[in-house]
Amino acid sequence: MLWIECSLVSEYRLCLRVYNQFFQQISMERSIILYSYIDRQMLNMAYPINLKGNIARLQDFYVMSVKATMGIFRRPLYFREAIEQMDYMGTGSFFIVFLVSLFIGMALCLQISAELSNLGLKMYTGKIVGISIIREIGPVSIALVFAGRVGSGMASELGSMMLGHQVDILRVQGVDPVKKLVTPRIIGSVLMLPVLTVIGDAVSLFGGYYISVYVSHQSGFFYWSQIKEIMSFDNIFSGVMKPFIFGYLISCISCYTGLSTRGGARGLRTSTTTAVVYSMIMIILSDFILTRILLYVLGMRV
């Protein structure tokens, strides 16, 4: 895409130089937070469209994500940090996940029950609520809540560490900030989001049960028997696999935006907002792609 912009020969040369510069830069692993250097180079070129800056950021993001993921398998292993993150992300998010899941389950059951009553199919409420919650609404809604609570926390914490020179101190002391700060957050996020999703799904189903029995006046036994019926491997796999991907995306995006924070309180605000917005967009996008892939892999007809 870079070449499309270059209508003039001089522009072409400029792009070639910039491209060479940052590919050389990345191959040399000169900086962990490559963004600062590359962005400076980009801006110095005073190029009207900051497309190159965006490509550089994207490349930076991939480099950081790969390094952080590889850090899981390389020494030193920061167990304590990973446990701390799991506690913060898992235990800390429990209450909000409980609350959100309960009311989503109840609202969903009300809507479905009302609609099915008109069609005389109220007895299928449990089945539809269960499938919706387990396969789609549970993982996505809890991931969105997680992105709002944990993603913003990660971005602001790392952002303030950048602004307060704590990341510089780590680098001066020979500690890899990506491994020390990003890897434990990825571990925490990838392990805790599926756990929270399972808990949230269960709470939502109980919310649905309450509405079915006490508001919609259906048989509780029938509701649970329908839920039991839909608890197949395919449905559970679809619902539990997604949070692993969502957790990885949320932690990588939030850590990257946090570590690229510049410009004081305003920069911190921008990176926190960016972390949440990008995480949410990626959750929705990847949910669609994953659903499409899973339906194909599990052989379900659309």
Partner: peptide, 24 residues
């Protein structure tokens, strides 16, 4: 030098930043 190669050179220094930059 790359980030990992810089480690040896950085070990020759210590730095005290204006705000202290202590780990919160």
């Amino acid at each position: 030098l790359s980030e990992s190669e810089l480690r040896e050179s950085r070990m020759k220094f210590s730095i005290v930043f204006q705000e202290g930059a202590l780990f919160d």
